[in-house]
Design a protein around this nucleic acid. Structure first.
Lengths: 215, 215
DNA sequence: GCCTGTGAAGCTATTCACAGCT
DNA sequence: AGCTGTGAATAGCTTCACAGGC
């Protein structure tokens, strides 16, 4: 059993490595060294080796990692046995961007249903995904075996939507609303708070300018 | 001088506290205890006290923090003396979501120009923001004194756009493209990688389900 | 020589726990 | 009694540095 829970930073980097490996494979590259992958990912070589270690895969000191095999090893850790279905709530600009972005991506993880409270946006298909009214949420989530929810609704509705998704059986949430969600401990929440991120970037951008000006 | 660089997690949380405080103020609340703010923000009370300490503000043991004053103290740290201008590159669904979201927000930080390579999307105003063709980027960034860039373009264009923004004088980037950017050390980059985030949520959602199933 | 895998060290971030105050 | 501010302890993450292998 190597699937004791990995740290979440590690999981994030593994996801990135896999995409980089897939890129390499397309370009016909068959082997890669930790320092090469590190450079592409913007991390240190030691970090890459630690992360690879966590997947249970071992490379060769002479040839480095086999691109194909490492990608498979990461997949075994990240993907698990069954395919996972995702529900998107909120089909505004952000929600549509998500649909466009994930349509026809990894077969192991796909958005299979969208929901919105606006009657003008429901009962149609966007990027191959059926858009339902909110009232159908618990039924569809249960029927489709959805385990992950993406919250792309206005702040005021976020908590309520989260609660509904959790009640319907979802155990992971990606939250774009700039408000912390109150959720039971068995639910994993990842916040994608654009406001906070932008303020953070502004803060450090300013630090950089000041340093340059001051020196 | 209390403006030695704060850790970036701290900056992120301060941004969140400020929004929560603004909410409290609207509701007429004048004082708040660390444990109350902590609950609202989803962190521990000790964490809140540490973060507040970093701003230089002190509360009272009897009444807690004064909402108004704490918000002001956070502002003094986060906002700096002058207003900061932001450029958005890429006016697809995601870019438009950003424009809608940030139009008329904090006066200290606002998107003042957008850029796109598609001629059909330029030379008009969306949510009060003028949309220019890519060729105008370096001129407008310089003229408007823009220090922060938001990258909302397809993966293939991201690196090139980042380079152009940096050449024009930007020192902070918010990157929505799912690829790491190669940037000089004086530039701060914050990645908002939706692919990675969603895979991470899926991983931990699965862990939760398994734990429940297994127990 | 240059790689990987990894124990140990180093760093950073968070939490504990309590003195001091009202 | 219940709060804040904070030194000290802890936990978590990253990097160092080197043994082992080709």
């Amino acid at each position: 059993m190597l699937d004791k829970r990995l740290p979440d930073r590690t999981v994030g980097r593994l996801s990135l490595y896999r995409r980089l490996l897939s890129e390499l494979r397309k370009r016909g590259v068959s082997h890669v060294y930790s320092h090469e992958l590190a450079k592409a990912a913007g991390v240190t070589a030691a970090q890459v080796r630690r992360d690879v270690m966590a997947t249970g895969y071992s490379g060769s000191p002479t040839r480095g990692y086999e691109v194909e095999e490492l990608a498979a090893s990461i997949g075994k850790v990240l993907d698990g046995p069954a395919r996972q279905n995702v529900a998107l709530v909120g089909v505004g600009n952000l929600g549509r961007a998500m649909l466009a972005y994930f349509s026809g991506r990894r077969p192991n993880l796909s958005i299979v249903a969208a929901f919105d409270s606006d009657p003008g946006r429901v009962n149609r298909v966007i990027n191959g995904v059926r858009c339902y009214p909110m009232g159908e949420l618990s039924r569809v989530v249960a029927e489709e075996g959805i385990t992950v929810g993406v919250i792309a609704v206005p702040t005021t509705a976020a908590q309520e939507v989260a609660a509904a998704l959790i009640r319907a059986g979802v155990t992971g949430l990606l939250n774009f609303a700039p408000t912390p969600l109150h959720t039971p401990p068995h639910v994993y929440v990842q916040d994608m708070d654009v406001t906070t991120s932008l303020e953070r970037v502004a803060y450090f951008a300013r630090q950089s300018s000041e340093k340059n000006t001051g020196a």
